[in-house]
């Protein structure tokens, strides 16, 4: 577990266009906090190599579900399987991207990105080489020696993303990663994320409350109902990915999907 070689020796993941296998399987997961039922018998599948979004009104338990999959929270009932293994805590095949970035304020970009590898006792030169690669990958080349407080919110989240990529996990769990980022940065970030999904062939599980973001990014959208959170609908928008971002956002299938989800969710607003 301590070398990069063993981390990369994960089962090969099928091509994005081929029929994918299931990377994350959630089976009848329930969770209650004192006085609040957060999740009730939630079951869902996340296809390998694809981006699945958990979408729902605030307080629907989507972050709780993501953290249960991450092994950070114990479910009261039900099981989670990641790549065929039952989850009973955090594991090296999963990496988490935090809503508030969760960077080490006293460490520069390189150390933050390499931190997951540092915890696995990967030698310094080796982990910094890996970090340098992913820093370039998320577009932060030239900022290696900066500290988090010297970066904008969007750049900090890129550091968080690079840290998650650097541990070479097969499944990336992202908890509203762009919610603390301004709109221009958010769009640029979404493009980069789509490129990474295509290129890294990892499974992404993405929590958001933005319908547009979910439709634009996702291969599969899982709509959760309000508390107690239950799976309400699974939508697979089939966007023509060959088009440019602006064209995609004008496509009828994009607009119709956004509208359909909005019609479903608006009852919670009214």
């Amino acid at each position: 577990m301590s070398t990069i070689a063993s981390l990369t020796a994960s089962p090969p993941i099928a091509d994005r266009r081929a029929e994918p296998s299931t990377a994350v399987a959630v089976r009848a997961v329930s969770k209650a906090y004192p006085g609040v039922e957060a999740l009730r018998e939630v079951s869902l599948d996340c296809p390998a190599g694809r981006l699945t979004t958990l979408l729902g009104p605030s307080g629907c338990g989507k972050t709780t579900l993501l953290k249960i999959i991450a092994g950070l929270i114990k479910a009261d009932a039900g099981t989670v399987e990641v790549l065929g293994r039952t989850v009973c805590g955090p594991g090296p095949e999963r990496a988490f991207v935090f809503q508030d970035f969760a960077l080490l304020p006293w460490a520069n970009v390189v150390r933050n990105v390499a931190f997951g590898l540092e915890l696995r006792d990967v030698p310094k030169s080796e982990r910094e080489a890996v970090a340098a690669h992913y820093i370039a990958e998320v577009g932060l080349k030239g900022f290696e020696t900066k500290y988090p407080h010297e970066l904008s919110g969007g750049m900090r989240q890129r550091v968080g993303l690079a840290r998650a990529l650097a541990v070479k996990a097969d499944v990336l769990l992202m908890d509203e990663p762009f919610s603390a980022v301004d709109e221009q940065t958010r769009r640029k970030f979404q493009e980069d994320l789509l490129r990474l999904v295509a290129q890294e062939r990892k499974t992404f599980l993405f929590v958001t409350h933005s319908i547009e973001e979910a439709v634009y990014l996702s291969d599969r959208i899982v709509l959760l109902s309000r508390r107690p959170g239950r799976i309400w609908k699974v939508i697979e928008p089939d966007l023509p990915r060959t088009l440019s971002p602006d064209q995609i956002r004008r496509e009828p299938v994009y607009l119709d999907t956004v509208e359909a989800i909005w019609q479903n969710l608006r009852q919670y607003v009214e």
Partner: peptide, 15 residues
């Protein structure tokens, strides 16, 4: 300490 730093430590496998 922010709870997310604690979770970060756990999720990246810190002993």
């Amino acid at each position: 300490i922010s709870p997310s730093l604690v979770e970060m430590a756990a999720s990246y496998g810190a002993g």
